[in-house]
Amino acid sequence: METNRLEELERKIQEYETIISEMSAPIIPSIVPQTILIPITGLIRAERFDKIRGKVLNFIHNKDIETAIIDLTDISGERIEDVCLEEIGRELHEMASAISLMGVETLFVGMNPELVKRMVLDGIKLEAQSFSTFQAALKHLMKQKGVEFRKISE
């Protein structure tokens, strides 16, 4: 009886971890056509990057996606657990490279100064454009794609 209860609790923990993992890197369609936003939130652990990368690659497979915006605004020193900033830089480089191999452009937004400094000092180069904010990236994409907002007269 105790074994069944323990197995049930382990199953629930795994289920909750999956739900939390899905919520901590949602894939959101953007207002700019063929563009998705991936805000990365929560504590950063080494194993999360593999899951996020896999989730993004599976999502863009067989979809008409041209650009993936990865939002790192929520990532700060206190949100990084058991991962050094240098490792995060390498993981971001690998993520951008993998997304690029799928034929999708990667834009990074919201990088914090600590991470940028560490990446520069360690010689980590991202093969992707970066912008200070999500709005700046959207403005760039809208200009690039010839999309504009217009007020509709009544």
Rank of each mutant, 00 (worst) to 15 (best):
L57Q: 03
I69K: 05
R150H: 15
R5K: 15
E114W: 01
R48K: 15
I13F: 09
R90K: 12
K125L: 09
F108V: 02
A137M: 06
S76M: 06
F59P: 07
V116N: 09
I70Q: 05
S21N: 14
M111C: 08
R5S: 14
N58A: 11
D122A: 15
V104M: 03
I20P: 07
V32N: 07
I38P: 00
L101T: 09
D50H: 05
E81M: 09
R79P: 00
R53C: 01
I69V: 13
E2I: 10
I19R: 12
E66P: 01
R90E: 13
N58I: 07
G146Y: 06
F59R: 06
G146V: 08
S132G: 10
S30L: 13
K51E: 14
Q34W: 01
K145H: 11
A128T: 11
I70T: 02
Q129R: 14
D82E: 10
D82K: 02
R48P: 02
V104L: 03
N112D: 15
G54L: 06
L115I: 07
V116H: 06
F108Q: 02
E154Y: 07
A136W: 00
F131S: 11
D71P: 06
E87M: 08
I152A: 05
I28L: 14
V147L: 10
F134Y: 15
D71I: 00
E127D: 12
E15D: 12
V147T: 09
G42R: 01
T67E: 01
I36V: 14
K63A: 10
E154K: 07
L37A: 06
D74C: 02
K51V: 13
K125F: 02
I69C: 01
Q144H: 14
L92W: 02
P33H: 06
Q34S: 11
N112Y: 09
E87T: 03
K63P: 05
I28Y: 13
Q34D: 12
S130V: 02
I13P: 03
R90H: 15
F49K: 02
E127H: 14
Y16I: 12
E47L: 04
E81W: 09
H140M: 04
A96L: 08
S153Y: 05
F59Q: 08
K63V: 08
R90Q: 13
E86P: 03
I152S: 10
F49D: 00
I99P: 00
L121D: 11
E22F: 01
T3A: 15
P113F: 07
Q34P: 00
D64H: 08
K139I: 07
S21A: 12
